[in-house]
């Protein structure tokens, strides 16, 4: 079962492609935290990842932090290995931590099923938006509903996100 709107973020402590360990509590000073379950191989992720980089760039000075977590089974999907995560992060210029969860405990705890799948938390680390990044994976220029951006803007303005849930669109998480 997935986290519900209003639920608290569940702590994690995971290695990042920067060879540092990242914990949820490391980001306590950030007013908004978007945890995005992600991976390397999925074409949906690849279609959206430039937008992830742009969202982080656009909102970094407002304290918004994105964190991507890959938990796919690398035996079945070797493209998603930790080494390949490092390569992808460098190639795409990821400006947010890209973490590896070999245990798959984090997506199980959050109830994530897809990549990419966004969980946006407020300063108290309550879930305020869950779902897709926007409504058009194929064409950034044709996006009509930028769900994540709208939720970020609303929360930064002290308002409720206009939409708090959308169905995540992407590849299934590859469980062991």
């Amino acid at each position: 079962m997935s986290l519900r709107i209003g639920d608290k973020a569940i702590p994690f402590k995971l290695p990042g492609v920067d060879d540092k360990t990242h914990a949820l509590s490391d980001y306590d000073d950030k007013p908004l935290l978007a945890i995005i379950f992600s991976c390397n191989h999925c074409p949906y992720v690849r279609a959206w990842e430039d937008r992830m980089v742009q969202i982080q760039a656009d909102y970094a000075d407002k304290g918004v932090q994105l964190i991507a977590i890959n938990a796919n089974d690398v035996k079945k999907y070797p493209d998603d290995s930790f080494e390949n995560m490092k390569i992808r992060a460098a190639e795409k210029g990821f400006n947010f931590p890209y973490l590896y969860d070999e245990s798959q405990e984090t997506p199980r705890a959050y109830g994530a099923t897809r990549t990419p799948e966004v969980f946006l938390f407020d300063a108290e680390r309550r879930l305020r938006y869950h779902g897709a990044i926007d409504d058009n994976f194929e064409n950034p220029a044709a996006v009509k509903e930028p769900y994540l951006r709208d939720a970020i803007e609303a929360l930064l303005a002290g308002k409720e996100p206009p939409v708090d849930w959308t169905p995540p669109v992407g590849c299934t998480i590859k469980w062991k």
């Binding site: 949906y44 279609a47 999907y77 994976f137 194929e138």
Partner: peptide
Amino acid sequence: LTCRVYQWPDGRISPL
């Protein structure tokens, strides 16, 4: 058994 990555002529990546 996976989703396929298509690179469009304009450089975009899509699952279709």
